[in-house]
Amino acid sequence: MAGVMFCEPRHLYNIINQYRWRSRLTEPNYLCLLDARSQREFNDSHIITAQRIELSPAGEYLIPNPEELGYVRFCVVYDHDTGFLGCTDYQEEEKETDTGPAWANSSLVSLDAGEGDALLHARNLEQYTRYPVLVLKGGYKLFSACYHFLKSQKTLWMPQELDTFQPYPVEILPAKLYMGNFKQASDKQIQKDLKIKALVNVSEQPVTLFTEEGKSLHISVPDSLEADLFSSFPTISHFIDAQLDVGAVLVLSSLGISRSSTATMAYLMHSCRFSLQRAWKYLLKCKMNMRPHRGFVEQLSAWENQIYGCPVTDVTEPNY
């Protein structure tokens, strides 16, 4: 079995806000988000795209389309306020139950009131999934407090609605540092929701910061192999450090893939003392399609050498 793991609210936020040329929520096997709260709580509000785990007429929990869960990249379960995972393995026995046509694509699991709902369901789902089932730490209570703008009362999302869903910038440091593209950075509502107080713009286009007391750093750099970001790494790092004391900072480039990820990793290496390898892996978990081009990788390697006095990461490896 794939197992059960905790999922920090920031992790789910970043899962929801991944995109390629459109939101990854449009991909049918990308995210299965399950709400284990009561019907009343679910109807009041829930995390966008979540579906509630239903009960059969016999009063047993239904597992939605278990044969499809093996293809889902992220299966996340949440209840009201799950705080921790139990230290003992738990495996619920399935009951053999006659099911009617309405339940033909689901498996039935008996309810055990002695275990938290999210963990109970995660333990039952793990036998069907290829990847670990994720239990949202802090549940809906914590997630909705951090990301109120991702709450919804909508219970059915049509494909065309998911096509038009506008992802938010990914979160690098909780409630402090974000990374995104030009379109996201130009969105007044996104700036307001994330409480952005400063922008680091490494694209060639200017961006308006809508908060009156905010500050912007614009380093106009083309996304080319000859472009130089290395000379600006100290300026970027010191600017972000200074602005984080005031509020959240958004690092942006045109597509939010190459230049912005380069600048963000340079900051993590400088201020968090990450090696290039560690910064790369950390950022890849936040944004799955981040990809500095080869010229920027060499500049990050030189930055690592300057910080540590010697190269730490072998950038000749295919991963870079």
Rank of each mutant, 00 (worst) to 15 (best):
M1S: 14
M1L: 07
A2F: 03
G3P: 07
F6R: 09
P9I: 00
H11C: 06
L12C: 11
N14S: 00
I15L: 08
Q18Y: 04
Y19H: 05
Y19W: 06
W21E: 15
R24Y: 13
R24E: 12
L25K: 01
T26I: 06
A36N: 07
E41H: 14
H46T: 00
I47L: 09
Q51Y: 01
Q51I: 08
L55E: 10
A58S: 12
E60L: 14
I63T: 13
P66S: 12
R73H: 11
C75V: 15
C75T: 15
V76E: 06
V77N: 07
Y78A: 02
D79Y: 04
D79H: 06
T82L: 13
G83P: 06
G83D: 11
G86Y: 15
C87G: 03
C87E: 09
E92T: 14
E93L: 14
K95M: 08
E96H: 14
D98E: 14
G100F: 09
G100R: 10
P101R: 07
P101F: 11
A102Y: 11
W103D: 09
L108P: 00
E115R: 13
A118D: 08
L120W: 13
E126M: 09
E126C: 08
T129H: 08
Y131E: 13
Y131M: 09
L134W: 09
V135L: 07
V135R: 06
G138Q: 03
G139K: 00
K141Q: 08
K141H: 07
L142F: 02
F143T: 07
A145T: 12
A145N: 13
A145S: 15
Y147R: 01
H148I: 04
K151W: 01
P167M: 01
P169T: 00
V170W: 04
L173W: 05
L173N: 00
A175P: 00
A175D: 06
L177C: 07
M179N: 02
N181C: 10
N181Q: 03
F182R: 07
K183A: 15
K183S: 15
K183Y: 13
Q184M: 03
K188Y: 09
Q189D: 14
K192T: 13
K192F: 13
L194G: 03
A198C: 03
N201G: 09
G214M: 05
K215S: 13
S220A: 14
V221L: 03
P222L: 02
D223C: 04
E226G: 02
L229T: 04
S231G: 10
S232C: 11
P234Q: 04
S237L: 04
S237M: 06
I240S: 03
Q243C: 05
V246K: 06
I257A: 09
I257M: 12
S258E: 07
S261G: 04
T262A: 12
A263G: 03
T264H: 04
S271A: 13
F274H: 01
S275T: 15
S275I: 00
R278H: 14
L283W: 04
L284C: 12
L284F: 12
K285T: 08
C286M: 05
C286W: 02
H293Y: 08
R294S: 13
V297I: 15
S301N: 10
A302K: 15
E304L: 00
N305V: 00
N305G: 08
N305D: 10
I307L: 15
C310A: 08
C310K: 10
P311G: 05
T313S: 12
V315I: 13
V315W: 05
P318V: 01
P318F: 03
